[in-house]
Design a protein around this nucleic acid. Structure first.
Lengths: 143, 143
DNA sequence: CCATGTGGTTGTAATGTCGAACCATGTCGT
DNA sequence: ACGACATGGTTCGACATTACAACCACATGG
């Protein structure tokens, strides 16, 4: 239904704006690092190690951009580059202890922001909203 | 619940990435204009006229940035600046016919993108997903 | 063993955003 | 009425994120 699609456009626009995603050097949670770096940190925290090329796919960035982001994270002392064991070309990324701590702080900040948001959603709706968001992501993702 | 909040973080991150929102000079729908300009155009299309300061609030940008965006849109021949009738300081923005057409094309592109996404969501879920997105936006917006 | 493809890095350029300085106009208190 | 302050806009300078192209190293397949 076309009216449904335009309502979605609306809703997505508003969501993006409300989230404050246009600010380049600050995450939506207020942490003073770029959003992409935060996402990279998140991916690394979830898995312990990650191939850099995998990060390229997950962040949907160019390999050059990804390389720079990793350099930034390394400069902050949060990740270490190591040669990939099974492929001489590859780079294996690993979180340092400081990086793990930073990831935890970031998670806490997000917790604060999204936790507060969740409090404004009726408890019985939360599961539905989360499910909807996941569904929507899958739907948008699939090219 | 904290596990709920972290699932949300996950879900939001994924959504943002899947949407491709990190590309500065291309909308998620593939239209080759910056996201903020697209949003500005959308706001102007919905209301016919808009005070520039209103755009600042809706886009959540600095007034300087907003001014530049409006200049861009004017350069494209899509909006006209006029003095606000009730306030000598203000600027009233109005869509030109070309701007209206551009807005329609943009809407069509979004329609194509989000329509395709919606098709991948079971029909009986769509209302729930839309509702969830609106709820989530309000929840995130509030602070 | 050469041709081609993949993973990474660096250089270059384009672009989006903010903060500050500045101007014009409105508003409020005395 | 008049000065002090707030509001709406513009311009300028700085900074940051991203992509594309060129290049290198390693892998893979005929």
């Amino acid at each position: 239904m076309s009216s449904e699609a335009s309502e979605f456009q609306e809703a997505v626009s508003r969501f993006v704006r409300a989230l404050g995603l246009h600010q380049p050097d600050r995450t939506p949670c207020g942490v003073p690092i770029p959003t992409s770096e935060a996402h990279a940190l998140g991916e690394l925290a979830r898995r312990g190690e990650l191939r850099q090329v995998e990060l390229v796919h997950r962040l949907r960035l160019e390999k050059s951009t990804t390389s720079r982001i990793v350099t930034q994270l390394a400069r902050r002392g949060w990740v270490e580059r190591a040669p990939a064991p099974d492929d001489g070309r590859g780079v294996l990324l690993r979180l340092t202890p400081a990086g793990l701590q930073a990831a935890r702080q970031l998670a806490a900040a997000r917790q604060a922001r999204f936790g507060a948001a969740l409090d404004r959603i009726p408890a019985e709706e939360r599961q539905a909203v989360l499910r909807a968001l996941i569904l929507l992501t899958e739907a948008v993702d699939e090219p």
